[in-house]
């Protein structure tokens, strides 16, 4: 066990537009990572602390895999790190390990970049012997990621795209609704993706009486229970997603509140990202002084 090793990127792959997979050196995290857990990274010394799910871990080689979608300045700065480059800091594994229910038949529903955090769940359920149905969705065919990896640990894979370029035209909850209408039954569901999608899926599974685990992604700072910024309401109680979660009983989560709180810094984020892109384009026009 060595402390203070550099977090070098040993492999970087572009999975889709603005989505990158990083394999990065983090031996202490790799050794203890469990499905559902995450890390907080700092891309450089003045960076925001950004939470990312551990998509895979290789304790023997001391690496973890992260899949990052560029959403704003923070993730754009991460995307700039190339192979051989390094993260200023990575801490983890954070959060509780996901509870792998011992069930016969499970359905996993992942939207967008949520496929990456779903992979450890799929592997765990697959190796527990459960029958795994995985529904993955994206805007368009080119944005579907990690399909081969998902297929290798699922019994059934179903795909939806918003534009119908692959699979069902529509969203993942449409696919699930159709399955349930056709009389398919599942003992458990896991759903990871944008809050609005998790809300829709939980609406369906609640009606069908399928216990559902969701992985929540509120805005975080420390990830150790010290700021309360990540608080979510679950079953009428305040929970800190970073230490009590990020996995929760989806039927008890107040998704509207989560979606509202995710917009806390909408203005700052927009200005920050705009100026980042402007500066990337070589122009010196900076609009950040508008924040006040």
């Amino acid at each position: 066990m060595t402390f203070g090793v550099e977090h070098r990127v040993v492999e970087k792959r572009n999975l889709a537009d603005k989505i990158h997979l990083f394999k990065v050196v983090a031996p202490l995290v790799a050794r203890r990572a469990k499905p559902g857990q995450f890390v907080i990274v700092r891309s450089h010394e003045r960076a925001e602390r950004i939470p990312l799910t551990i998509a895979d871990s290789d304790p023997d080689n001391g690496t973890i895999s992260l899949v990052v979608q560029e959403m704003g300045r923070g993730t754009a700065k991460i995307a700039e790190i190339g192979e051989g480059g390094k993260f200023a800091g990575i801490v983890g594994p954070l959060g509780r390990a996901g509870n792998i229910a011992s069930v016969n038949k499970v359905v996993l529903i992942a939207g967008g970049v949520g496929v990456a955090p779903m992979l450890p769940y799929a592997r765990a359920y697959h190796s527990s012997g459960a029958h795994v149905t995985t529904i993955v969705g994206a805007k368009t065919r080119d944005m579907l990621i990690l399909l081969d990896e998902i297929e290798s640990v699922s019994d059934v894979v179903m795909v939806s795209t918003d534009d119908g370029s692959l699979g069902v035209k529509g969203v993942v909850s449409d696919v699930l609704a159709r399955l349930l209408a056709d009389g398919e039954r599942f003992d458990h569901a896991v759903c990871i993706g944008p809050a609005v999608m998790m809300k829709a899926v939980c609406g369906l599974t609640r009606e069908a009486g399928i216990p559902t685990t969701v992985s929540l992604n509120p805005i975080m700072v420390d990830g150790t229970g010290m700021c309360g910024g990540c608080r979510v309401t679950v079953g009428g109680e305040i929970k800190f997603a970073c230490v009590d979660g990020p996995g929760f009983d989806g039927h008890a989560v107040d998704f509207d509140e989560l979606m509202s709180r995710q917009r806390f810094y909408e203005r700052e984020e927009r200005l920050s990202y705009d100026s980042y892109r402007t500066s990337k384009e070589g122009s010196h026009r900076c609009r950040l002084d508008q924040i006040g």
Binding site: R46, R49, M226, E269, S272, I291
Partner: peptide, 25 residues
Amino acid sequence: SANEYLTRSNLMKAYLFPEHETPIR
């Protein structure tokens, strides 16, 4: 929470946003 507010400002230096990238209201 005061802890979040102060952590953003002190540890993350949000008072120097945007040079330091963590935002604060």
